[in-house]
Structure formats: C-alpha cells, structure tokens
C-alpha cells in the first residue's frame, strides 16, 4: 500500500522528513562558527562575567533581583537562558533563513516532499534541539559556579523557554521573510545587542521603561525566566505577553513572508 493510500504511513514519512530537516539544521547551527559564538560562547561569557565580576552588585542590581544570600549565578542564569533563546530562535534563525531565502534554499525545499510547513516545523525542532544543548551547557557552567537547581523551577522554566522560542522564532522568520538578507543580518544582530543592553533580558527595569519592556518579548521572557528559576512559579502576565507576540508574529509571517 502506498503512503498516499495509507494515512499512518504517510504521517510516519512526514514525521521522518521533518526530523531529518531538524537534524540537518541543528547540526548546521552547531557546526557554524559564528552561530556557535552567538548561541554558546557569548552566553557562557555573559554568565561567567556577570556571576564572578560583581558587575551587577556594583550597580545595585543584585538587591533588586532577589535574595542577596543566593549565589550571583542563580540570579544571572535565568537571563542568560533568555539570551540563549533570543540568540538561537531569533538572531540565528533570522540570519540563516534570510540567506537561505536569498540563495533559493527555501524555494527548493518547498518543492520537495518536505514542503513549506515541514520546513517551518523542522526549523522549530532544530531551534529546540539547539536550545536543549544550550541549556545543558549553561546549566553545567552555572552548577560549576555554585548554582543548585530545584524541582519546582523545571516546569515553569521549560514552559517559558518554549513560549519564548515560539515568539522569537516567529519574529525571526518575519524579519527573514520580509527584509533583504543583508538588512536581516544587520537588524538581527543590532536587536540582539539592544535586547541585552536594555530589553529586560538580563535585568529587570523599573519605572516607565520597566513597564515598556515587560510588554515586549525580551522583557517578558527575562521576567518569566526569573520568576521560574528564582521563585519556582509561572509568571502568567509574562506568559501572556509571549503568547500574544507569538500569535501576532505568526499571523504577520503567514501574511507577509516571501519565499524568494
């Protein structure tokens, strides 16, 4: 019986194709020097730097972020994991997809049995696979610096990572599918820096700027990650912000994404 006449076989074949695409993209990311710098090396540097140099303490940020008795790395890790999401789901995917679009890779894959939806699903799985690697590496480095994970933080932390991935991947694809590859490269890198510098990823802002960042994806993700890993709770407001941004970016991507 052919796969077309056998829905179960057709579904199995489809899943295998999506997994093959995810494997190909994840390996390409992990072998690419600049992507590795963005996805692993810079987050590790930020994690070690902020946990050991007293930079946060000097700015009085540790007091604002949590229990001063806790190891600084515990306060830094949530933000660094948020940075990992932005690096892989947004900046990395936007640049890779933008150049794949320019070189006709998206068009070619769309003509294969993988199809357009399979390609997007493969990208999502690839991002999640890289995120698992990033989380393990950051967790190990953090543990070496004195961080001790606890069970209650795992579920809300994983959920926030998933919501952040959905929102930032949709935003990354929107940028990649609407701008030229060079503009995507410049814009995605610039936004990565801006999100880190003042977007609320690493530290929570106060006042009017704090309210603005809490309504934006980087601020919501950073806030949600801190609530999960420091307090073991799901920040519903932050989760809602990410869901709304993911939905809006997804709809905009479906509407405006250009495959060539």
């Amino acid at each position: 019986m052919s796969p077309a006449a056998n829905p179960a076989a057709a579904t199995g074949a489809r899943i295998r194709r999506v997994l093959a695409q995810a494997r190909f993209e994840a390996l390409a990311t992990l072998r690419h020097g600049e992507q590795l710098l963005l996805s692993i090396l810079l987050p590790v540097i930020i994690l070690i730097g902020l946990s050991t140099t007293g930079l946060l303490d000097a700015r009085g940020l540790l007091d604002r972020m949590g229990d001063p008795a806790e190891a600084p790395v515990a306060l830094v890790l949530p933000g660094v994991l948020a940075v990992c999401v932005v690096s892989t789901a947004f900046t990395g995917q936007a640049i890779a997809t933008g150049f794949d679009r320019r070189y006709g890779v998206l068009r070619h894959l769309a003509t294969t049995p993988l199809g357009r939806s399979g390609l997007v699903q493969g990208k999502l799985l690839a991002v999640l696979a890289v995120l698992v690697v990033q989380t393990l590496v950051m967790g190990l480095v953090a543990a070496a610096l004195g961080w001790r994970p606890s069970l209650p933080m795992l579920l809300p932390g994983a959920l926030m990572l998933l919501l952040g991935t959905a929102a930032f991947l949709a935003l990354g694809l929107l940028v990649a599918g609407t701008l030229r590859a060079e503009a995507t490269l410049a814009g995605a890198n610039l936004l990565w820096v801006l999100f880190l510098a003042g977007g609320g990823l690493l530290v929570e802002h106060t006042g009017a700027w704090g309210a603005v960042t809490a309504a934006l994806p980087p601020g919501a993700l950073g806030q949600g990650m801190r609530a999960a890993l420091l307090e073991g709770r799901l920040d519903l407001a932050a989760a809602l912000v990410l869901v709304l941004w993911a939905a809006a970016a997804y709809l905009a991507t479906v509407r405006w994404f250009r495959w060539s």
């Binding site: 070189y103 890779v105 003509t111």
Partner: peptide, 16 residues
C-alpha cells in the same frame, strides 16, 4: 512533489 525533481536557477543549495 515526491515524483518531481527541480533544479532552480538560483541553485537552492545551503552555502555552509
């Protein structure tokens, strides 16, 4: 698509 092969003018190959 499973029965069709396409060579596009812009190549469609991932550069890396």
């Amino acid at each position: 698509s499973p029965r069709t092969g396409v060579m596009l003018q812009d190549g469609g190959l991932p550069m890396g």
